Simulated scan of single mutants.
Amino acid sequence: MTDNGQNGLNPGRPPASRIRLVVSDMDGTLLTPEKQVTRHSIAAIQTLKQAGVPVCLVSSRPPGGMEMYFDVLGLHTPYGALNGGTIFNADRTIRSRLSLDPEAVQETLDMLKVHDIEAWLFRGHEWLVTNATGAYVEPEAKAVRMTPTAVPSFDDYRQDVGKVTGSSADYEALMRQELEIGQLLEGRASVARSCQCFLDITPKDANKGYALRQLASFYNIPIEEVACIGDMNNDVPMLSIGGLSIAMGQSKPEVAETAHFVTAPNSEDGWAKAIEQFVLPRVAPLSDSSAGKTVS
């Protein structure tokens, strides 16, 4: 594991000495490359719980794709789905939601269509597709244990959209569209790849930095006392503001440089190692004044 020292984007921001909340990405971070959770990670979560430090997950996944892991992880805390734009309570009800402007949805769909990139829409608990046999639909359905709803077109579904995802095996095309759509929707949406094959377009403030702030507020904890862990471009908004930010070992340099520390890759139990080496020595349990908020 590597100690990156001070933050690459803000050299004046030293790592926190006190941690009371952990906010983590899932794919590429808490999950192994096979989309599994290791026993070491489960044990680390239990140790945090025993110390009174809650763990909240934030992911580009739809809510169902996150909830499928909660029982094995023993987590019953609020969580941020759709890249953090929709915050759910532990009982699956929506706590807060940001939506894309319908015009931004249409402009995104037009750009993806021109470049032959398949589009999906996510609204609350819904996943909408126009091509149910698309290359990534079946693998994603299995991965998140959700069945998409096939619609003839997206014309009647541009309201209340929490995320548009462009999926393609042409990774370079997605990289180009991350820039082009980002420029097109500058000031109106957040545009970032959540993995090599997925490009996510979410409301302007719907990013993992927004989710971190929402979750910290729920527990009445300042973000300076929140540890966050991630691996991709869409994790940068939280890595760059968290009190203690940790990048996974396989992260690209532009992601790693925004973190205080770099742990081992997710193929080598990097999440559990990060908790053990960087977080647990800094944990401080929730005080009585912060509850009504159950740590579970």
Rank of each mutant, 00 (worst) to 15 (best):
G5R: 03
G8K: 05
L9T: 02
P14K: 13
R18P: 00
R18Y: 00
R18S: 09
L21K: 02
V22Y: 04
G28Q: 03
T29Y: 05
T29H: 12
L31C: 06
K35R: 10
Q36S: 09
V37W: 06
V37R: 03
S41M: 00
A43N: 12
Q46L: 11
Q46K: 13
T47P: 00
L48K: 05
V53I: 11
C56E: 07
C56Y: 03
R61Y: 11
P62D: 00
G64L: 14
E67A: 14
D71E: 15
V72W: 05
L73Q: 08
L75T: 03
T77A: 09
L82Y: 11
R92K: 13
R95W: 00
R95N: 13
S96C: 12
R97L: 08
R97Y: 04
L98T: 06
S99C: 14
D101A: 10
D101G: 03
E103T: 14
A104T: 04
Q106G: 07
Q106C: 03
E107K: 15
T108R: 02
T108Y: 07
L109T: 07
D110E: 12
V114N: 02
D116W: 12
A119N: 03
A119P: 01
W120R: 04
L121C: 07
L121D: 04
R123H: 10
E126D: 13
E126M: 12
E126N: 07
W127S: 02
N131I: 04
V137Y: 08
E140D: 09
V144H: 08
P152T: 12
F154G: 00
D155Y: 01
D155K: 13
S167T: 13
E172M: 12
L174D: 07
M175D: 15
E178I: 07
I181A: 11
L185C: 06
E186F: 15
G187R: 15
S190Y: 15
A192I: 08
S194V: 10
S194M: 10
S194N: 06
Q196K: 08
T202P: 01
A206L: 01
N207I: 10
K208Y: 14
L212M: 13
S217F: 13
Y219C: 02
I221E: 05
P222G: 09
E224A: 13
A227M: 03
M232V: 06
N234P: 02
N234I: 02
D235G: 02
V236A: 03
M248S: 06
Q250S: 09
S251M: 04
P253R: 13
P253L: 14
A256N: 06
A256C: 05
E257N: 09
E257V: 09
T258M: 12
A264S: 04
N266S: 08
S267C: 06
E268V: 09
W271G: 06
F278N: 01
S287K: 10
S289C: 03
S290A: 14
S290D: 10
T294A: 11
T294Q: 13
